[in-house]
């Protein structure tokens, strides 16, 4: 099981802040994860329809979409940051 956490409009559109999912072996990279999630339902499709707008963190560190997710215990998906 991998813990997924969502923030801001990604969280709102998916409808939950976190969940534990069993990911198939075909999901190798963070980008694969986004494509996989888009197939899980309309809410995911809506939240992730523009993958380039989605930022990914593995174990709370920023990564690019081509980063392998092997060994990840927590993966965060969220929009570009707007703090400060």
């Amino acid at each position: 099981m991998t813990k997924l956490v969502y923030f801001a409009w990604v969280r709102e559109r998916i409808g939950r802040g976190e969940e534990d999912l069993d990911l198939p072996a075909s999901v190798v990279t963070a980008g694969d994860l986004i494509e996989h999630l888009k197939g899980l339902g309309e809410e995911y499709e809506t939240a992730l329809q523009f993958p380039k707008a989605i930022r990914v963190a593995i174990n709370q560190e920023h990564v690019e979409h081509d980063e392998p997710i092997a060994g990840a215990t927590e993966i965060g998906l969220f929009p570009p940051m707007t703090g400060g």
Binding site: A8, A57, G76, F78, P80, T82, G83, G84
Partner: peptide
């Protein structure tokens, strides 16, 4: 501003909940 994971959502004076601030 560009890499610390914070996000801003606007709440408007007319009582509505506005948009998430865009980067």
């Amino acid at each position: 501003k560009t890499s610390a994971p914070f996000w801003k959502k606007e709440h408007l004076r007319d009582g509505s909940s506005g948009a998430w601030v865009a980067a």
